[in-house]
Amino acid sequence: MSQDPLLSIQDVTVEYTTQGKRFAAISGVTFDIAEGETLGLVGESGCGKSTTGRAIIQLPRPTRGTVQFEGTELTTLPYDQMRQIRQRLQIIFQDPVSSLNPRRKVKDIVAEPLVIAGISDKAEREGRVREVLTAVGMDPDITMERRPHQFSGGQCQRICIARALIMEPKLIVCDEPVSALDVSVQAQILNLLEDMKERYGLTLLFISHDLAVVKNISDRVAVMYLGKFCELASSLRIYEAPAHPYTAGLMATIPTIEAGAQLETAALSGEIPSPLNPPSGCRFRTRCPIAQDKCASDEPQFREIETGHFVACHFPLTGGTA
């Protein structure tokens, strides 16, 4: 909104071929991330959250669209220049155990980005590994010589975070980083991410299907449905006054602890349609409680209904009208 965004994504489409058919896992996704902010990305399984995260780090490269990071266009960047950028653009995965090579020692795993970056001084590498392991709350003396299977899931995720942090990146894509962890450990990891964000001046794209987690950690939240963005607004706004019926439905599924509160079980009914054959017009219309004829014929544009509040719906629940 103010200066140039750290990351700017325009009209990104990622297509895959399955059973001889091409289909778009995400289509026409557009958003910015400002420096220092945390953008939450929520949606049901298979809606393209992870694909969006991976399109940012160019694994795989998007089929169409542009991804600009610090003013550099990534989609057309040659391989060796992309390698330089990768040091500033890291990713943390959902399964911390699978993210660490079972046959390598923790010190080698965490030092790997340094080796790739060409830092050949062994003492310097070890110093930086110790520093970053300490930062994520692991004791380097105990940790460094061990292998990943000697650690718990939460500890493995700390090691993953250490590996992501060691090159001091600008942006970290967190792909469901706490979904595989126990609730008590989730809180520790979320706090750690917050601390690290402050300490290293990070910008985060936080992907999750857990609305409560996203609410706590994000400055802004984007909601995805079937490969498209439905709504994007500040965290406060989207939880208080959702404009898209899908967002409203999701919000209604968050359990509350208020006395006498009843869960609206019918808030979202039906199944997600197959992305191989998405519905015409608005993709949510098959499950939308307020869908009308227009929703089947015209695809709603992703437009700004209030400052900083974007929605893709013909009949938004709050703000302007169609």
Partner: peptide
Amino acid sequence: QREFVMAARAQGASHLR
């Protein structure tokens, strides 16, 4: 298919590496 391979690619490791 394990994520540590994806992580290595995200760090900029070459295929050979």
